[in-house]
């Protein structure tokens, strides 16, 4: 096993332990809790009145726009992290290069801002 992967072995053990804890508690709960199902109990909660409409509601488009913008900045992060690690090697060239990159991305944000996408309506 490569040394690179061994560092994640502990993470895997930890994840297993965490998953086990959840499973254990759930099983314990399943073993000891009472179960007296009734029609009323399985109705979706809507402040006490009968639920209206269909099962899965639709949410507004504005949430989706923030997801799109997030992709922009997450991809940006993919480029910025390696750059930050090797900045000393690149020197002034790296700084100017990243300056240009960030300005272009900032233009994207300004465009979104100008278009009123960031405005919560």
């Amino acid at each position: 096993m490569a040394e690179f992967l061994r560092a994640y072995l502990t993470v895997a053990v930890f994840a297993g332990a965490a998953g086990l804890l959840v499973a254990l508690l759930s099983t314990l709960g399943w073993a000891v809790r009472p179960s007296r199902p009734s029609r009323q109990k399985s109705i979706a909660y809507e402040s006490g009145v009968d639920p209206a409409g269909t099962d899965f509601g639709q949410s507004q488009v504005r949430y989706y726009i923030f997801a799109l913008l997030f992709v922009l900045f997450d991809v940006e992060a993919v480029y910025i992290f390696p750059w930050a690690l090797r900045l000393e090697g690149y020197g002034v060239f790296g700084l100017v290069e990243m300056g240009v990159f960030i300005v272009i991305l900032a233009l994207g944000l300004v465009y979104a801002w100008r278009k009123g996408v960031l405005r919560w309506v």
């Binding site: 993470v11 930890f14 994840a15 332990a17 965490a18 998953g19 804890l21 959840v22 499973a23 508690l25 759930s26 314990l28 709960g29 399943w30 000891v32 809790r33 009472p34 179960s35 007296r36 109990k41 399985s42 109705i43 979706a44 909660y45 099962d55 899965f56």
Partner: peptide, 29 residues
Amino acid sequence: IFKEDLKPDRADKPVFRLAPYLSVVPAFL
């Protein structure tokens, strides 16, 4: 642990059960 577990009948049961795992495990990690 001793409380009755209620699931809405409209719920997507497998995902409904999976979600707590997805919440707790990253918190640990």
